[in-house]
Design a protein around this nucleic acid. Structure first.
Lengths: 204, 204
DNA sequence: ATCCTGACTGTACTGCGAGTCCAGTTGACC
DNA sequence: GGTCAACTGGACTCGCAGTACAGTCAGGAT
């Protein structure tokens, strides 16, 4: 129970790698079971269909992403107590993290899921939606803290600004994937960081 | 030859609507031929396989998008000769255009293709890449014109800033699609517009 | 009038992958 | 020794992509 990873997790690991590399539809159950060294029957024992697999993968991915953000901004907070600088440091850390991934970031499952959503059931779609709404709330909260200290130079909708973090990451990953370049996402985050510096230049 | 749309275009129209609504994989040749009222043989007469269809669709989509940008910024230029204001007006027009689409923007084929790229051959992938590089060049050119008149408050990489237009649109469309909201993309564009206003605030 | 060609129709076939069904095996723990 | 969870293995259906090919049909070219 400690030495060998349990089968379900092994399936998820193999599937995640394959799906991030080539997409959900292009990944066959055949190759997943081959990679995990189980039988087709074994796969369907754990997941009633591909939809259930997608759902489990998405849940795991979202949890990991949230844990990453928690960690990143906690570290940033340790370095600087000012909410703006905390945000700026967190974004820098995020950008660095994306750059350090040798093959480039695996690519956000959110976008991939969004564009193939007819393949999935309502549960999967809703999971996706809730994840983005969660990030909106997280970042809007951080931006509201900033506005208590800094006067924004231009009026902006805080929900939209919160969404922009996710949007810039997603958009950057799309570019990176399509262009086959390696640091578009981190560059885009750094540009967004500059935006925040310009927006919150003056203390209240 | 005038009255009825030729079969190839009819196939592309039907396919485009279906693909934008539910994705490429989820669209079967069966339903395309049913919609276009032709036989399966007829379909394969025009397109050797689904890949050729994807390629033709992408070509048409990219041409349309480029024509749209040409038109938008030409109109903006008529309204104001200053390169910054031309850019700001063009983005406003783009945002308005996205909002006016009742069902929301169909969703950019670029992102969709990027995340399913293993389904496609090198030709399709390259088409995608070239399109984004074209937009990078277009917007970088516009930003360089702006910097000849306005001093940017912060140093930014002009290629990355050019990419940010595409990235913000793509990212916004991903959010919109996943959230099932209607104006995220236009909101994101307006936020990016504010960024430019802050970045190029002072004349040289 | 005839021939040719481009644009199809219609049918029959292969092959792959998802998903179902189910009978049987194996190892752990109670 | 019995029970149960975690499988294996094989046979089957179904939908869809793609192949193959024979035949039809309208409209020029000669």
């Amino acid at each position: 129970m400690d030495q060998k990873v349990d089968t379900r997790s092994r399936i998820l690991n193999i599937a995640e790698a394959a799906v991030l590399e080539k997409g959900f539809e292009a990944t066959s159950i055949e190759e997943i079971v081959a990679g995990a060294e189980i039988s087709r029957g074994g796969f369907f024992y754990h997941f009633k269909d591909k939809n259930a697999l997608a759902r489990a993968m998405l849940e795991r991915y979202i949890d990991a992403e949230n844990a990453l953000y928690d960690d990143l901004f906690a570290r940033a907070r340790e370095l600087n107590d000012d909410p703006l600088h905390c945000m700026l440091i967190g974004l820098k850390l995020l950008a660095e993290m994306l750059e350090e991934m040798p093959t480039g970031h695996p690519g956000c499952v959110i976008a991939s899921t969004a564009y193939q959503d007819r393949l999935f059931d309502e549960g999967v779609r809703d999971l996706n939606r809730q994840a983005i709404l969660g990030w909106r709330k997280r970042f809007r909260g951080m931006f509201e803290e900033i506005t208590q200290v800094y006067e924004p130079r231009e009026a902006v909708n805080m929900d939209a600004l919160g969404d922009m973090v996710s949007g810039v990451v997603e958009g950057g990953l799309v570019l990176q994937r399509a262009l086959r370049e390696h640091n578009n996402a981190s560059e885009q985050i750094m540009l967004f960081r500059t935006y925040l510096k310009l927006l919150f230049a003056d203390k209240q």
